[in-house]
């Protein structure tokens, strides 16, 4: 039974933090960036709090295989990798505070962070709240979400045993999803709008050899067909504009991410795609507010780059606090 490989001991969250205190640093988001920042903040002796709205680990926990994080030559699942990050952070005094960040304000060098579990006061902030998957751009998405439209292949693949599913997207995530789904589904169709996949070559090679996976390139989704659940997808050829309906039972969406910046609306400078702009020290347009990980404007979004961002952000926050005291 493969499930028994994984008796996960996720670090339990808590609310023991005393919110009357003023923290040196509030780290918002417990993905790879936030957890790494916590390791550095803990070792630097800062009085810090780590806030997370869901269970920790960030988006990478949805990946059942991570092959490009150095130090794991056999590869490792996203969940297991994040469990290790957590254990290491916890060794240096990190405890996760459960709460959803709703608003951030700054006055007189003090940040006030409104969360679903109370207001946190902190002298500096590392914003590492990551991103959410981009929704499938068809008018029926909301109606069929959870009824055949899924954003988590690891979670939901089992519901599509011996069925036909479609993965929308052409990047690494899409191909990892397709490979995972091919262990359950009868057929997996990868739908991508360009004439070439975007994923790294090694993944493309594995996918092309998999007899259960079929590529449908230069097509975009138009409409979901179905009554109570997904029964088909109307797709359009981007060149000929011809459309057709493919009969499928599930649609797994991996077309990119939307940065989670709502609590910072109107406060920090964003790039044209909505990601937070920072300098080389990870500092945003607001002094004392740093950004790290997927939420930041950066050319590459990986666990390794998020971890790097987190380390730099924690180091910079420490320097910022030292200057503040002068």
């Amino acid at each position: 039974m493969e499930n028994f490989d994984l008796f996960s001991e996720d670090m339990s969250s808590n609310r023991k933090a005393d919110l009357n205190e003023v923290f040196d640093l509030a780290i918002l988001g417990a993905g790879p960036a936030g957890l790494t920042a916590s390791i550095y903040a803990g070792r630097a002796g800062l009085k810090f709090i780590l806030v997370e709205r869901l269970s920790s680990g960030g988006q990478i926990v949805f990946s059942d295989q991570v092959d490009n994080y150095p130090g794991f030559p056999e590869g490792i699942s996203g969940s297991q990798l994040m469990e290790r990050f957590e254990k290491q952070a916890s060794k240096f005094g990190t405890q996760i505070f459960s709460g959803e960040v709703r608003e951030i304000k700054k006055s007189d060098n003090l940040f006030l962070i409104e969360t679903s579990s109370g207001t946190i006061k902190s002298r500096s902030v590392i914003y590492a709240m990551g991103a959410d998957p981009m929704k499938l751009p068809v008018p029926e998405e909301e109606r069929f979400r959870g009824k055949g439209v899924s954003y988590c292949a690891t979670c939901d693949a089992a519901f599509f045993k011996d069925k036909i599913v479609c993965v929308v997207g052409g990047g690494d995530t899409a191909l990892y999803d397709a490979l995972h789904l091919s262990r359950f589904a009868k057929n997996v169709i990868v739908l991508h709008r360009r004439d070439k996949l975007r994923a790294v070559k090694v993944l493309q090679d594995i996918v092309k050899k998999n007899p259960r996976i079929e590529l449908l390139l230069e097509h975009i989704p138009l409409h979901i067909i179905g009554n109570k659940k997904v029964e088909g997808l109307e797709v359009e050829n981007v060149k000929t504009r011809e459309s057709k309906v493919i009969n499928i039972d599930g649609i797994f969406v991996a077309i990119g991410i939307v940065p989670n910046t709502l609590p910072l609306k109107g406060i920090v400078e964003l790039d044209e795609k909505g990601f937070i702009k920072t300098d080389l020290n990870m500092e945003t347009s607001v002094q004392g507010l740093f950004a790290a990980g997927d939420v930041r404007a950066t050319p590459l979004r990986q666990v390794v780059t998020a971890a790097s961002d987190g380390a730099i952000a924690a180091f910079s926050a420490q320097k910022y606090l030292e200057n503040l005291e002068r």
Binding site: D64, T154, A158
Partner: peptide, 8 residues
């Protein structure tokens, strides 16, 4: 499902 990270 046992493989769902946010189910707990």
């Amino acid at each position: 499902t046992p493989t769902c990270p946010h189910c707990p």
